[in-house]
Simulated assay, not measured.
Amino acid sequence: MKKITSTMVAREAGVAQSTVSLVVNNRPRVSEVTRKRVLDAARRLGYVLEPRSGGVLIGVIITGCRAMNSYLAMTITAVKEEVHRRGFRLEIINSDDIELLNERVVAGAISLSNDPELNERWKELKNIPLVRFVSRGSHADNIYTVYPDCRADLRLIFDYLNRMGHRRIGLFLERTVEQERRFLDRTGELFRELLEADGIAAAERLVSFAGSGTLTERLDRLLQEGITALVVMPGDVALRIQGELARRNLRVPEDLSLLSREYSNVSEFMTPPTTTLLPDYPAMAAHALNLIEMFLQRKQPPGDIACPGRLLIRDSVRDLRNQNFTTG
């Protein structure tokens, strides 16, 4: 395929080549109208917007009103490190302000936001590729997705807990049923399927979604089901669950085994250190930037990409295999 040059962009935009250079290098001596015309032309042609000083600019979209949690902290860290490794630059943008990307010399964006309206609003942007973490994409609108391989990850968790003698396993999620439908990692649905495949009756009662009561009420319902192990996601919530268990004089793992999603620099310092599922955030970041680069090179991206994680075995799961223990 023919290489796209700044001369071709200038011709498309109806400006001088020097004007294209001014826009790409963020020089102030260009009117907003001309600037937008050049950026639109560059994106239509697939011209990589890279300043002379180097460093393609990648936007990272977050939800502005959302507090920093374990998922956001770990994904931002992974994206930041991968962007730096490739010699790119990074700009964090509120999901409410994505239209600003039309005015930036940005090559593409990665969304860590679960904003359900983001895909629809993205259609208004000018041929900018977007890669979403977890939330569903729309290939026709240049939106792709990288996400944890939830089926493989839950299989890891189940196989480990089963090997340790656990059959009555509960799941505590900090997402509603409605939010679950928007994600590619359908954790609650897949967890229930695994329980049913293991012959567990009324498996739906062992999956607790947000919105079905207070944390205390939801935990009580799971405990009443006779669970011997509880999987809690995300890692932030595991801290609260441990506090609730302590108030009931229940010990981890003696009275209830606990497994969660990794919360870096926190999970390993809980009492006891928590066994966790660590999503491969670095791989997700690398795949996201690969997809953006393929788009800029006018190559067809392969589609959405699932990334399996791994277990970090610590001290929060009790071994029931050699004990005289019956489940409810």
Rank of each mutant, 00 (worst) to 15 (best):
T216C: 09
Y281L: 11
T34L: 13
A286I: 08
E120C: 10
L112C: 05
L256G: 07
V23E: 03
I305G: 08
V106G: 07
L190D: 03
M8W: 03
A203M: 05
V24Y: 05
Y147C: 13
L206Y: 13
D280F: 05
R314Y: 11
V33H: 13
L289K: 09
V317S: 02
E293V: 14
V105T: 15
T63H: 01
L250I: 06
P301H: 14
N322L: 06
V146M: 06
E180I: 07
A78E: 01
V56G: 13
D185N: 12
R89Y: 09
Q323L: 14
S21K: 04
T7Q: 11
R168T: 02
G108P: 03
L312R: 11
L239E: 00
P28W: 01
H287W: 11
N102S: 11
I93Y: 02
I76F: 08
Q297M: 15
K80P: 01
N102T: 08
T75A: 07
P308F: 08
G87F: 06
Y144R: 12
T77K: 14
R37E: 10
R175K: 12
S70Y: 00
N102Y: 07
L245Y: 05
G108Q: 09
F209W: 09
H139Y: 12
L258C: 09
E50K: 10
L72N: 02
G46L: 09
I58V: 15
R52L: 08
R44C: 07
D97V: 00
I62N: 00
E174D: 11
T145Y: 00
R221L: 10
E12Q: 15
V20Q: 05
R155D: 06
E103M: 08
E268S: 12
I61W: 02
Y160C: 01
V232I: 15
F325G: 10
R251Y: 09
L112A: 03
K36C: 03
L39A: 13
L101S: 01
E81A: 12
A41T: 10
A202R: 13
F191N: 07
I93D: 00
E262L: 09
G170N: 04
M233C: 14
R298S: 15
P148N: 14
L118Y: 02
D40Y: 12
E193F: 08
R155G: 08
D185C: 10
V207W: 04
F191C: 10
D220R: 12
L90N: 00
Y147H: 15
T326M: 15
L219Y: 11
F183I: 04
V20I: 12
V231T: 05
S267I: 04
N26L: 09
P308D: 03
Q224H: 12
F269A: 10
R251F: 09
V56Q: 15
H84M: 11
R104M: 14
